Computed example of a mutant assay.
Amino acid sequence: MSTQIRNLMKKFGSFKALHDINLEINSGEFVAILGPSGCGKTTLLRLLAGFDSPTSGEILIDKQELATTKFFLPPEKRNIGMVFQSFALWPHMNVKDHIRFPLKHQQFLSEDLKINIDSRVDEVLKMVDLLHLGDRMPNELSGGQKQRVALARAIAPKPALLLMDEPLSSLDAELRMSMRKEIKQLHQLTKASIVYVTHDQSEALAMADRIVVMNKGKIEQVGTPKEIYSCPTSTFVASFVGKANLIQGKWEGDTFYPLDDPTIKWGNTDVTSELKNKGIFPARPEQLEISLNEGGLEGIVTSVQYQGKEIHYTVTIKEEEQWVIHQDISKGFSVGEQVFIHLKINQNTTDGIKQLAYV
């Protein structure tokens, strides 16, 4: 079942939290809503869940209206599952009872699930590798196990749409990495339609089929992880996803003259027309390299951060601009050293996506 969001707008008093949001989520698709704090992503999720009503616009699932300016369906009457940031487990219920609860009370439950509740509980617990912990209480579980219970409870009744509100933000870094893989595997097993809200670019890149980048209540860009990372259409997307250096200069066709320096030419056909028209080259940190070889833009190393397999440099150019450059450890540079910046030839953009996705 597909979900349609049409011309959605939400105001709180005079403040407009969402501006004309239009989006379609296809059946079985994993969509990540990505953006900084205050961009409207959680407001959008709350509207989908039925916790808030829209000021204007409409939301439909499988062509059935959930919310319009004249009609509003409450959360309990929507075929939607929800995974909260804080897990929201009930302290008086064991693991099995958490999974059993929506199977007893969800009005959209299929007849097959209604007569096979116990087998569905076991099936879901196997999916999240918690079958051996079915009798445990929430206070007897680790953070990762609690998150698995919350996931299992949400997917048990097979909702038309599964909403996740930054479900990994309260976990430590290593556990977040593990849970990313588990959520991705659950999506492949259940074929559920998922809307996943996050401010973490690496999560969105690692898990989503499509990413919706939001800023100041508006959708900046929608695309696959590779499209969002490699071909940003706005300066915000370029700097927020992949942390690109927004280099000013002059474009002539597919040739770029950084900082209007006529002696230095960079070639790139992946830069979108929107950024070319603004005279901007979005150079990600891994696309640039520094060396002692002349022929590049001259700069001074002002910061060095050792990261194990690579070093993160900040280089100041013309005493004004600062660019961040990631480089392997084969050649080290020191703070205060004069260097020259070059654009790498035939840089594989997929490498950058993998690097960001698994940091």
Rank of each mutant, 00 (worst) to 15 (best):
G50Q: 09
K63L: 06
T272S: 10
K126N: 11
D351G: 06
A17Y: 08
A173M: 14
E166C: 07
S273M: 06
I228L: 06
S303D: 14
I329R: 14
E294D: 13
A17K: 10
D135H: 13
T233M: 08
K276T: 02
L131D: 14
V222F: 08
Q221P: 05
F240K: 00
S142M: 05
T263W: 01
L141P: 05
L141M: 09
K77A: 02
A160L: 05
E320T: 14
A152Y: 04
G50L: 08
I5S: 06
K226F: 08
W90N: 10
N22S: 12
T316Y: 00
P74M: 08
K309R: 10
V237W: 02
H187F: 05
V121K: 01
Q338R: 14
L292D: 13
E286Q: 15
P54A: 08
F281H: 04
L292G: 09
M137R: 06
L151Q: 06
G143I: 05
S334T: 15
K104M: 07
Q305V: 15
Q305T: 14
D172Y: 12
F84N: 10
Q145F: 01
L161Q: 04
K104Y: 04
K226W: 00
E140K: 13
V301P: 01
V315T: 07
V212D: 00
G299V: 03
M177F: 11
M93Y: 10
G336R: 04
L89E: 08
G279C: 01
I194W: 02
Y229R: 10
A67Q: 10
E337P: 12
D165H: 08
M127H: 04
V241F: 03
N116F: 06
Q287A: 09
E319S: 07
H342S: 09
I280P: 00
L44G: 05
Q145K: 06
V324I: 15
T302V: 15
I264H: 03
E286M: 14
N7A: 13
M177K: 15
I264R: 00
G144D: 05
I290K: 04
T233Q: 14
F236Y: 09
G28V: 04
Q85W: 01
F256D: 03
N22F: 09
Q85G: 07
A88P: 06
K11L: 12
I25Q: 02
T272I: 00
L186R: 08
P138Y: 02
L18T: 07
D97V: 02
N293I: 13
L23H: 09
S230E: 14
S53N: 12
T68H: 02
E203C: 04
I280V: 08
L113R: 13
G308Y: 00
A173R: 14
T235G: 08
Q248C: 10
A32V: 04
D209Q: 10
K114H: 03
L130T: 01
A154E: 04
N215G: 09
Y306Q: 14
